[in-house]
Design a protein around this nucleic acid. Structure first.
Lengths: 166, 166
DNA sequence: CTTGACCCTGGAATCTATTCCAGACCTTAT
DNA sequence: ATAAGGTCTGGAATAGATTCCAGGGTCAAG
């Protein structure tokens, strides 16, 4: 059967397949508060209303844009209670956009950097005895790599290391 | 005093300041095997040779490029023992480059997407009563967002969820 | 001696989305 | 009934680099 409990409701696995995520992920969304807790049938199985599929889809979109499950939870909770967090949504989205822009610039710089490094290396390596050391990594030290660290959003600033209090 | 124990050696804090990382990070690098274990003075304080600064710099560069501490550890260990892992380095670097290229494309697509979404939203919001709901998030559902998920390297493919064995 | 500023250790926490786990129940077809 | 397959739960694991923590030495100046 495809529709679960003969009503128009979906069971976890069905919604999962339908929206391309795992049931674990669905439960996770629920835990995180981005997916409203569905009703339960007598056997305690979740009964998702068909709209849930759209909701999951929206969540995925928002995640792809760069929203965080927690941010989303905050927004959606307000909204599901009749509020209109659109201002907040816009605000966050704008920040995400800015972050993306910056990330693009940094990543491109990194790409160019790495690309040129590889050219160097190819050259060095071909003019080096097989088994010899071309000191590829060393050549990095001299380079003027932009401080762009790549890994996702990294808190900018100098290295902290909080003071001990004891 | 600037030079620690009057010899040309650096203490943890000094190397840290010098290379712009925290002492915790230095210890981490050591644990991970990318920073050779320095000698110790009588008081068991680390004594870093001045070259260590270059090494840390190199590590940072390599990280920025997309190397992983573990990858680096493998490479550097071979190297510090007289080996010449340049082939391997080149191999990894090339892979990183490809990954970067792809990430750039994806991120740009995402940026454009988000940018156009924001245009929509701005319009919608300005034609909505203050305090009213513009249903911004909903509008995501209809969009044809490229499947590009953003978060760093994500294992591609459909949702797994391994079979229970019990 | 006391203070403040470093240093040491090993292990745990952070962040985030997703997955994995074990033990146990429900349902349906054979 | 019995096995297969879906579902339930809460908590732990994953990845990666960095940070935080507590408890405890070391050292120079006041």
């Amino acid at each position: 059967m495809g529709d679960a409990s003969k009503n128009g409701f979906l069971r976890a696995g069905e919604l999962a397949r339908l929206s391309g995520v795992s049931t674990d992920t669905l439960r996770h969304y629920e835990r995180k508060g981005v997916l409203p807790k569905p009703g339960r049938s007598r056997n305690r199985y979740r009964q998702y209303p068909p709209e849930a599929a759209k909701r999951v889809l929206m969540i995925q979109r928002a995640l792809a844009i760069g929203f965080t499950l927690d941010e989303l939870a905050g927004i959606l909770n307000v909204r599901d209670n009749g509020g209109s967090p659109c201002g907040r949504v816009l605000e966050i989205a704008a920040a995400k956009l800015a972050a993306l822009e910056q990330r693009i610039v940094e990543t491109i710089a990194l790409r160019d950097e790495l690309s040129s490094i590889l050219d160097d290396w190819d050259a060095k390596l071909s003019s080096t005895q097989p088994g010899g050391r071309a000191a590829l990594l060393e050549s990095l030290t001299g380079r003027n790599l932009s401080k762009a660290r790549d890994p996702q959003f990294q808190k900018s600033g100098k290295p902290r290391q909080k003071h001990r209090r004891s």
